[in-house]
Nucleic acid binder design. Sequence first.
DNA 1: CCTAATTAATCAACTGGTTAGTTAATTATA
DNA 2: TATAATTAACTAACCAGTTGATTAATTAGG
Lengths: 213, 213
Amino acid sequence: MSKKIQKRDAKVSRELIITHAKALFSEKGYASASMDELGERCGLNKAMVFYYFKNKKGLYESVMREILVEIQQAIMEENKKHQTPEEELEGFIRTYAKYACAHPYLPSLLLKELSDSGAMLPDMLFSSMRQLFALFSDILKRGEEKGCFHDAIPMILYFMILGTLNLMITTKPLRIKAAELGDIEVDTCAQCDINDIADYMTDKIKLMLKGCE
Amino acid sequence: MSKKIQKRDAKVSRELIITHAKALFSEKGYASASMDELGERCGLNKAMVFYYFKNKKGLYESVMREILVEIQQAIMEENKKHQTPEEELEGFIRTYAKYACAHPYLPSLLLKELSDSGAMLPDMLFSSMRQLFALFSDILKRGEEKGCFHDAIPMILYFMILGTLNLMITTKPLRIKAAELGDIEVDTCAQCDINDIADYMTDKIKLMLKGCE
DNA sequence: CCTAATTAATCAACTGGTTAGTTAATTATA
DNA sequence: TATAATTAACTAACCAGTTGATTAATTAGG
C-alpha cells in the first residue's frame, strides 16, 4: 500500500483525462469531441480539462505526443534486438501491427491526421513521424548496401506498410459487417488476426524487395 | 446561345453547392464544415443548401455518392479495355492513382471515412466500396486460375493499393515541407509524380504476386 | 404581344441548442 | 492555515436548421 486512497490526486486526474481523451478523439475526431463529454467520461468537472491542459488544442497535442512517443519507443526498442536488415524489417512491421492493434486509437488518429496533411499538428507529429521514417529508411538503406534489398523507395514502402495496417485495423467493423451480408462472393478477412496480416505483409514485401534474379 | 444568361438557375446552384461542398468537407471534415461558410463560398444564402438538400447529412451523402460513383465508373470503364489479369491489375492501379490525384478530395474524404469505419455512411459508401473491391478481387481470382498470380489475399492487397496511393496524395504538402527542412537525410518523394508512384507499385505488386519459382 | 397570375429561387433574420473557455467560490490535503 | 484540486454557474460565439417575405422566371389569358 504505497499510497492511500484519496479523493484528490492531480496525477491520477491528469492521466484519467488523457486516457479518455485518446478514446474520445479517436472515436469522434477532433472537432466533434466535446470537452463536456470528456469531463463526464472522466467523472470530473469539465473545467479540470482546462486546468490541466490550457485548451482543447493543447490537450489534443498532449494526446498525440503521447501516442507517437509510445509507438516510436516500442519500435526502437524492438529494433535493437535485431541484426540483419531483413530481421529489422520484419520486426518493424510486426511491432507496428501489434502495437496499433492493441491501441486502436493510434491508427484512427493517425489516419485522420494524415488525411489532413497534419493540419492540426504543425511541428510535432511531424518530427515524430520523421524520426520513425528515418529509422525505417535506414533499414532499407543498409539492406541495399548489403545486397539483400533491391530498388526500394522508402517513402512509398513506409506508407504501404502503415497504410495497409492502419486500414486493416480501422475497417475491421466494416469488414465484419460486409462478411455478414455475404451477397457478394468476396473474402473480407473479417476474422483475420493482425499477426497473420503482418506475417503476410512481411512475406510479400520481402519478396518485392528481393526481385527475381 | 442555347441559354440566355439568367440570374437564377437551379441546376447551376445545385452544382455550385456540391462542388464547393466536396472541397469544404475534404478540407475540414464533416463536423467542422460550416454550412454558413459553404453558402458564402457559393455566393449563395445558407438557406439554399437546405433548399436543395434536406440537411447537412443529406448533402454529405450526395457528395460521397457522387465521388464514389465517379471513381467506380472510371475504373470499370478502364477495366473493359484490358484482357489479361496482369493488364487489368495495372489498369486498376493506374486509373485509381490518376483519378485520385486529379480529384484530391477523394483520398481525403475516403481516408476520413475509413478511419471511422464508415460511421457517417451506413449503406452507401459501403455498397460502392464493395463493388469496387469485388471487381478487384475478381481480377486476382482470374489471375490465380490462369496461374499468373500466387497466394493473393485480395482484401490486404486492396488496402495496400488504396492506402498507399491515398496517403501519398494527402501527405504531399507534408512531404514537401519535410524535404525543405532537410535536417534528416531521407528522400520524401516530395517531387514524385503520381504516375511514377503508380508504376512503381504496379511493378512491385506484380513481383510479389509472381513469387520466385 | 402584352400583362396578370403562378411558381421557383433567393435571402435576411431568427431560433434553440451546443461548445470552448472563464470565474469565483468551495473543498480537501499537507 | 496555505495551497492545490475541484466545482457550479456563467458567457460569448457558433452552428444547423426554419420561416416568412421578396424577387425572378414561367406560364396562361386576352
